Amino acid sequence: MKLIEEIYQKIDENSKNFLGYPLAKDFDYREFAPFLNVCLNNIGDPESPSTLLFNTKSIEKEVVAFFADILSTDMEKAWGYVTNGGTEGNLYGLYLARESFRNPIVYYSEASHYSVKKNLHLLNIDSIVVRSQNNGEIDYEDLEILLSMNRHRPAIFFLNIGSTMKEAIDDLDKIKQTIRKYSIKDYYIHCDAAFLGCIAPFRDPKPKFDFLEGVDSIAISGHKFIGSPLPCGVVLVKRKHRNRIVNSVSYVGTLDTTITGSRNGLTPLFLWKFIQEHGKDGLAKRVKESMEIADYAEKKIKELGIDVWRNPQALTIVFEKPSDKICSKYQLASEDNIAHIICVPGITKDQIDAFVAEYKEDLKTVEAYATPVY
């Protein structure tokens, strides 16, 4: 159909220019095209069989086990499933946290993803927004003050392992120090590692955020750093938390432990293919190569003479917000007077050079309009 062809051509063209969102561009899953002619439905718990037999649960379990490994745990201690993306993973972590305590409070920073407020509203959990620092990290002094005022109530900590705008990482050690200082006995730690969940395990030094550090749940996106034509992700939780909410559903002969009933059975195939082809070593190499592109991008943008900033080892480069024309063409995410580019796999030095060249010309235009004429 002509309309479908036109839509594809428009999307294909737009995908060549974007730099502002964490969406890997270097994937090819055409071999899975035959699966578009069947309904893959991973209904229910990935570890529980179902009377519905056209599923990819065996593949899904392998994917979850891989992520458990890079997050310092195993499938005896942890449980997880392939989600529709980071928002669902965060919703699931907060859901299990809510079911763990009576009358808890969620603490999250103002730099958290926009979906957190929505998830908290859906779950009807009391929450407090904590100030964030200039680098996007949570303000630990503000957190301590708020926590001390509510020390009698269970605490749920929603931590950013790569904040949306500046890729900041909340310091788990500092959070734990505050927990100990005020003798908080009932608490739950969820980590939103949507972007950095596939990256942080291979940084040196490695940030503290995984199950080795005692966190309760972690949400990761699959379409961001690994890459996928469909949004997807993985949520990992301590198995004891998942066991608290298990229900058996006779209608489909399986256990109900996930957010949705019917679940996508195609995206586990995409993640599985990446794991088979790359493994941990390939993922580490991917992180290294992306870091090199980020170093290059930061250097080239600095040469323009504008304010440029970046958290240590981040793939996100923050700088003065360009004109609307530049932001629109390169699909830059912006907030107030700043914008950023994110150096995901598939972005090349040539693309960075093209962006910098246009930005340079754009700055000249701005200067010309700003220069008074006498």
Rank of each mutant, 00 (worst) to 15 (best):
Lys2Asp: 15
Tyr8Ile: 11
Ile11Trp: 06
Asn14His: 14
Lys16Gln: 11
Leu19Asp: 10
Ala24Gly: 08
Asp26Phe: 00
Asp26Asn: 15
Phe27Trp: 07
Glu31Asp: 12
Phe35Cys: 09
Phe35Pro: 11
Cys39Met: 12
Ile43Phe: 03
Glu47Leu: 03
Glu47Trp: 00
Ser48Trp: 02
Ser50Trp: 01
Leu53Glu: 14
Asn55Ala: 11
Asn55His: 09
Glu60Gly: 08
Ala65Glu: 14
Ala65Pro: 04
Phe66Thr: 10
Phe67Ser: 08
Ala68Leu: 07
Ile70Val: 10
Ile70Leu: 08
Trp79Ser: 09
Trp79Pro: 04
Trp79Lys: 00
Tyr81Val: 04
Asn84Arg: 09
Asn84Val: 14
Thr87Phe: 02
Asn90Trp: 00
Leu91Val: 03
Tyr92Arg: 12
Ala97Glu: 06
Ser100Leu: 03
Asn103Asp: 15
Pro104Lys: 02
Ile105Ser: 06
Ala111Phe: 03
Ala111Gly: 10
Ser112His: 06
His113Tyr: 04
Tyr114Ser: 14
Ser115Asn: 04
Ser115Pro: 08
Lys117Ala: 15
Lys118Asn: 13
Lys118Pro: 11
Asn119Ile: 02
Asn119Cys: 15
Ile128Glu: 08
Glu137Ile: 03
Asp139Val: 01
Glu141Gly: 11
Glu144Phe: 02
Leu146Lys: 07
Leu147Thr: 04
Pro154Val: 06
Ile156Phe: 03
Ile156Arg: 02
Phe158Gly: 07
Gly162Trp: 01
Met165Val: 12
Met165Pro: 15
Lys166Trp: 01
Lys166Cys: 06
Glu167Leu: 13
Ala168Ser: 10
Asp171Met: 01
Asp173Val: 10
Lys174Thr: 14
Lys176Cys: 05
Thr178Glu: 08
Thr178Cys: 05
Ile179Trp: 04
Arg180Val: 14
Ser183Phe: 09
Ser183Pro: 13
Ile184Val: 04
Lys185Val: 10
Lys185Trp: 05
Asp186Leu: 06
His190Val: 05
Cys191Val: 02
Ala193Ile: 01
Gly197Thr: 00
Ile199Ala: 01
Pro205Val: 03
Pro207Thr: 13
Leu212Arg: 06
Leu212Val: 12
Glu213Cys: 08
Ser217Met: 03
Ala219Pro: 07
Ala219Tyr: 02
Ile220Pro: 00
Gly222Thr: 02
His223Leu: 13
Cys232Phe: 00
Gly233Ile: 04
Gly233His: 03
Val237Pro: 02
Lys240Tyr: 07
His241Asn: 15
His241Tyr: 15
Arg242Met: 14
Asn243Glu: 13
Asn247Phe: 10
Asn264Cys: 04
Leu266Val: 04
Phe274Cys: 09
Ala284His: 01
Val287Asp: 01
Tyr296Ala: 14
Lys300Gln: 13
Lys302Gln: 15
Ile306Asn: 07
Trp309Gly: 07
Gln313Glu: 09
Thr316Phe: 02
Ile317Met: 08
Phe319Asn: 11
Phe319Ser: 09
Glu320Met: 08
Glu320Pro: 02
Ser323Thr: 05
Asp324His: 07
Ser328Ala: 14
Ser334Val: 09
Ser334Pro: 05
Ile338Lys: 14
Ile341Gly: 01
Pro345Phe: 00
Pro345Thr: 05
Lys349Met: 15
Lys360Ile: 01
Leu363Glu: 12
Thr365Asp: 12
Ala368Val: 12
